[in-house]
Every structure is written in structure tokens, then in C-alpha cells.
Amino acid sequence: METVWAKIKYCPFWPARIVSTPLELGKVPKNKICVLFFGTKTFGFVHQDFVCDYVQNRTKYATKGRGSDFKNAVIRMDEFILDPVKFAANGSVKPVNHTIQVKRERAPIVKTENDINNVPFETSFVQCRSKTKNKSELPYNSKNVSDLKAQIEAAKNEKEKLVEELVATKDESQTMYFNFQSSQKMIATLQSERNELKEKCMEQNKVIAQLTKEKNQAQNKIKQLMANTHVKLCEEVESSVDLGRNKEYEVEAILSHSGRKGQRRFLIRWKNYSSNHDSWENESNLNCDEILNKYLHAKGLKK
């Protein structure tokens, strides 16, 4: 386990590499390990309990740190894991400082209103003289500083873009939420109207069923009345026909005749009836000898 996550008190887990302790730093404290922090190029003595494998815990700690230094440290560590030889050739594995920087833990200092310079964590530096004093070997030359500024500027631009996208997404989400609420209200209104129409239809169906029942009852009564009336009419007609057959009408006068003797027919005027009821009758149907004899005598006919 050479590449690790190392944690100093009041700081997040930081990408680091376990290295041999430089002679300038002296003896390593008990139960601690000397590590080189990526990105800051500083050494630190970290307790064994606060060191864990980098690859296995990358997903866990890579998103918890903040700031450009932390992102740069993760990038440098990934580059080192992919190609250690190329990374060492770039001079990024071991710092070549005029002074060696060491991070140490200190107890937190409570911040007061009168002293704004107090912070909960401080980084002390143990300065040791190095054999070389060449300025070109300093870790942060003008090129590195310009690159760092460019990275910071790019990070700011990316942050602004992310903020704009977040605001646009928020507005879109609010619009979608309002549309969803209006849709829910419309659905509730339509459902209530549907229920009202359903109730009205049920009531109308009940009324239609009742009217249909009454109609059927009326039709049955009409059929029954018609049947009874038909029977009565038939009986009355039959009785009247029977009465008409047996009834005798009285002759008022004989108006004319036709045919020869034995086949004569007479035009009869019936008593109490108008001329519209005059009819021709055979001589055998007449039962009025006195009127018939008078008519034959008057006409000079023989009986």
C-alpha cells in the first residue's frame, strides 16, 4: 500500500504517498507514518489509524474534498497511478524545495471576536536547509503559477456555467411542478363532473324504467279494454242482427212494381222511414194484402 488517503486532524482525507522520512525531518513520531501529500508537495506525519488504501477508497473520499488544491491532488494521484515513470520524470513525485514543508497537527484554537486571525487549524513549517539554492528548482515557478491561475479561471468559468444550468433547471422544475398541479386540479374537476353526469344518468335511467313500466301497463290495459269492447260489440251486433231478422216492418204504401205475374217485385215505402229507405221486395215477402189489393186494382192488375 504505497498510494493512500491520509488524514490530519481538522482536514479531509488527502491523496498521499508513503515515503521514506527525509533526513532533515529527523525521527518519525511513534505510531505515525511519513507521507508526501500530492498537490501541496508537503510531508506529514499521519497516525496509522488515519491511513487507508487510495484505490479501494477513491469513490468514498474523492467527492468529499473541496477546492482546487484537492481536485489537483486527486488528478496528480491518478496520473501517478497510471504512469509512475512519466510522473517521476515531470518532477512531481518528490519536492525539490529550498525548504521542506511538514504538516503537523495542533489543538484547535477557539476563535474570538477580538482576534480574527485565530483559526481552528494551522499548518506549521519546519524549515531545513537544502544543499542546493538554485531558484530554478523551486516547486512553483512562473510557468506553474500561470498554469494554476488558468486552472483556477477555468474552474470559475465551469462553476458559473454550473450555476446557470442549476438556475435554468430550477426554473424548469418549478414550471413543470406548476403544470403538474394545474393538471391535477383539472383532473379532479373532470372527475367531479364525470361523477355528477353519472349520477344524472342513473336518475334518468330510473325515470325511463318507471315510464317504460307504466307504458307497458297502459298498453296491457288498452289491449284488455279493446278485447272486452270487441267482444261486447260483437255480441251487440249479433243481437241486433238477430233482432233485425225477426223484426217486421210496416208498409205505408206501394210506389211501383216490375215483372210479370208470379214474378212481380214492388217498391215499398216503409212507415216511419224516409224515401232513402225505400226498397224492392218480392210479392212473397209482403204481408199487407189490403194495400197490395188496392194497388193492383188501381193499376188494373190481377193477383
Score class of each variant (00 low, 15 high):
Asn179Ile: 02
Thr189Phe: 08
Leu197Trp: 01
Lys221Glu: 15
Gln174His: 04
Lys221Cys: 02
Lys213Gly: 05
Lys223Gln: 10
Glu193Thr: 10
Glu196Met: 01
Gln217Glu: 15
Met176Ala: 13
Ser183Arg: 02
Lys213Tyr: 09
Val207Trp: 05
Asn205Ile: 05
Thr189Glu: 11
Ile222Met: 10
Lys170Val: 14
Lys215Met: 06
Ala188Arg: 06
Ser182Trp: 09
Glu214Gly: 03
Thr212Gln: 10
Leu190Asn: 10
Ser182Asn: 11
Gln184Pro: 06
Asn195His: 00
Gln217Asp: 15
Tyr177Asp: 09
Lys198His: 04
Thr212Ile: 00
Asn220Tyr: 11
Asn228Ile: 14
Glu214Arg: 05
Met176Trp: 05
Lys213Asp: 06
Ile222Leu: 11
Ala227Gly: 10
Lys223Ala: 12
Lys206Gly: 12
Lys221Tyr: 03
Ala218Ser: 08
Leu197Met: 08
Ala209Lys: 03
Ala209Pro: 03
Ser173Lys: 04
Lys198Asn: 10
Asp171Ile: 01
Lys198Arg: 02
Ser192Tyr: 10
Gln184Met: 12
Arg194Lys: 13
Gln204Met: 11
Ala209Tyr: 01
Gln210Arg: 14
Ala188Gly: 09
Phe180Glu: 14
Glu172Gln: 08
Glu172Trp: 06
Ser173Asp: 08
Met186His: 05
Gln191Gly: 04
Lys206Met: 06
Asn205Tyr: 01
Gln210Leu: 03
Ile187His: 06
Lys206Tyr: 01
Lys215Asn: 11
Gln204Val: 03
Lys198Phe: 02
Cys201Asn: 14
Asp171Arg: 08
Met202Phe: 10
Asn220Lys: 11
Gln217Ala: 13
Lys200Val: 12
Asn195Lys: 05
Ala209Asn: 11
Thr175Trp: 03
Lys200Met: 03
Asn216Tyr: 00
Gln181Leu: 15
Met226Lys: 11
Leu211His: 00
Thr212Trp: 00
Lys213Val: 07
Asn228Pro: 00
Lys206Asn: 12
Leu225Pro: 03
Ser192Trp: 06
Gln224Asn: 09
Gln174Ile: 15
Lys223Glu: 09
Lys170Cys: 01
Asn195Thr: 13
Ser182Glu: 15
Asn220Gln: 13
Gln174Phe: 08
Leu197Gln: 11
Asn220Ala: 07
Gln174Leu: 07
Leu197Lys: 12
Lys206His: 05
Gln224Cys: 04
Asn205Glu: 04
Leu225Ser: 11
